[in-house]
Amino acid sequence: MALVALASAKGSPGVTTASLVFGALWPRQVLLAECDPAGSDVAIRMTGPGGAALNSDRGLVSLAAASRKGLGDEVILAHSQQLDGGLDVLLGVRSPEQVGGMGGLWHPLGITFNQMQHGDVLADCGRIGASSPQLPVIQSARLVVLMCSATGSSVAHLRERLSTLVHHVDAQLGVVVVADPKQRDAVKQVWTVLDAMSLPVRHRWHLAYDQAGAAFFDGRGHGRLDKTPLIRTATDITAEMASLVSAPPPQDFDMANAAFPPGDDR
């Protein structure tokens, strides 16, 4: 299976909301992992089956303690919980102060996420920078998606972060612009900025922001969720993301091996 990392260059243009939406719509088994060192939002926003409160002590911090004996699907899933609706989630730290106790977990965690047999992993990495502790998780991902709004300042930070990120990751890169459905021209301007940078950002999406849709993932929703612009656009984005990581990653071409394959005694 594969790891998909979602992050923002600055502020919070809805990374957690988008992660919850994509996780709810993901076509295969998936685990949402909160890797944002700023602290967990899911435990505050969402509930477990039947409206039960989530256990904020069970998640990334408890996994860090258990990981001293090794990581694997069973260990990670033992520290995850299920949201009302069925999405599995690994809750993040309660506060930034707990990040110091994570030790060297980030690197092996990223590798394990990308190799889980249980299903895919969506990692909500929050805001990232050159010294972000969760950067090893992003470096292990098959697909890295940066999110921004269609404002000038957000796009400027996106451009800066992408310029640095391309030197640190080998993953496919994507950008999601969270903007009102009517802001098509503003979204096109973001694509123009990316084209001018000549960066390998092949995957670009417009996630329609609407308060009614977002409210469902903040515990305040009412009415038909599937009728909201957020869900209509997220459905197509999720399907494309899942398809991108469903195929095995391309292998480097080995000229020597191609000319003299194993077992060839010529």
Rank of each mutant, 00 (worst) to 15 (best):
V193L: 06
G100P: 11
Q172C: 01
V177K: 12
Q115C: 04
R159D: 08
R159S: 14
D88Q: 15
V42P: 10
A33Q: 02
R142P: 04
W26H: 12
W106K: 13
Q117D: 06
A123M: 08
I128M: 11
T192V: 12
L143G: 03
V30C: 14
P136M: 00
L77G: 01
G103E: 06
K10A: 12
R28Q: 11
R45E: 11
E34T: 11
D84W: 01
A256Y: 02
A258K: 13
A52I: 13
P181L: 01
T238C: 14
A33L: 03
S140M: 07
A2H: 15
A24L: 02
P96I: 07
R161A: 04
V190K: 14
R184Y: 00
A65M: 03
L20M: 12
L122C: 06
K69S: 11
L25A: 08
V187G: 02
T233P: 09
L63G: 10
Q117K: 05
E240G: 01
L32H: 14
V175Q: 05
Q251V: 14
A171Q: 08
T164C: 06
G119F: 04
F217T: 09
W205T: 07
A66T: 14
K227R: 09
R232S: 00
V144G: 10
Q172K: 07
V190I: 13
I111E: 10
V42A: 04
G72M: 07
V93H: 06
D236I: 15
C148H: 15
Q189A: 08
Q115L: 03
A33N: 05
D252G: 05
D84A: 08
V4G: 07
R161K: 10
K10C: 03
I138C: 05
T47R: 14
L225A: 09
S80Y: 03
D236W: 05
G101K: 10
D254Q: 11
D210H: 10
S246Q: 15
V42W: 06
P13V: 14
S131K: 15
T47A: 12
D170A: 07
Q172R: 12
S56T: 15
D41T: 09
I231Q: 04
